[in-house]
């Protein structure tokens, strides 16, 4: 059964040494962090590294997160930074980045309401965007996607970028309307 406490309460409890609160934070946000790391193109091993590093950062920030209620967004932003750092070529030696202060507003799409809105919006898109974005979600390579969509492999990347742009526009329009 999931812990009913709000994120800010969990954060404070974890800072006070409550291990169950830490576990609840992991249970709530770990799956999203994994999805962000993988969406950044990391292998499973590197994604695990990025997720671990983000939790270590949180552990040192338990009492200094600027907005405890938005710890979820802070974690998503942190894991994205870690993942992008890891995905760069020059990764030997010592790497780190400055601690995230404010969460990326775009990370809100990973909240439950945001995900529902996103999926609803994808389902309402016209082809080929609807199918393409659903295939993106299933991690198909460009070759397979081209074959499923009946388009040249070279057009998958540009089409994907166009569809994501359309999705972004629709989401922000709906958010503005709410």
């Amino acid at each position: 059964m999931s812990d009913p406490r709000e994120p800010a309460e969990l954060l404070q409890a974890a800072a006070d040494g409550d291990r169950s609160a830490w576990d609840a934070l992991e249970s709530r946000f770990g799956p999203r962090m994994w999805a962000v790391a993988r969406a950044c193109g990391l292998s499973p091993a590197d994604a695990a590294d990025a997720v671990q590093g983000s939790w270590l950062r949180l552990l040192q920030q338990l009492q200094s997160i600027r907005d405890p209620a938005r710890v979820g967004g802070w974690l998503m932003t942190t894991v994205r930074h870690e993942a992008l750092l890891l995905s760069r070529r020059e990764r030997r030696g010592i790497t780190s980045f400055e601690v995230v202060e404010d969460p990326d507003p775009a990370s809100a799409v990973l909240e439950a309401d945001g995900r529902r809105l996103l999926w609803k919006t994808v389902s309402a898109l016209q082809e080929p965007c609807r199918t393409l974005l659903q295939l993106v979600a299933f991690d198909l390579g460009s070759q397979q996607m081209a074959s499923r969509l009946g388009v040249p492999v070279g057009s998958v990347g540009p089409t994907r970028a166009r569809c994501l742009e359309k999705l972004r526009t629709l989401i922000s329009t709906q958010e503005t309307a709410q």
Partner: peptide, 27 residues
Amino acid sequence: NDEYFLAALRLAAGNDPIPSRVSAAAR
């Protein structure tokens, strides 16, 4: 920040859940 969109789509698809060892390591 397309990664957040892609991550949300991946979560909805549910075909790449967080491995239990990654969760356990975080805890």
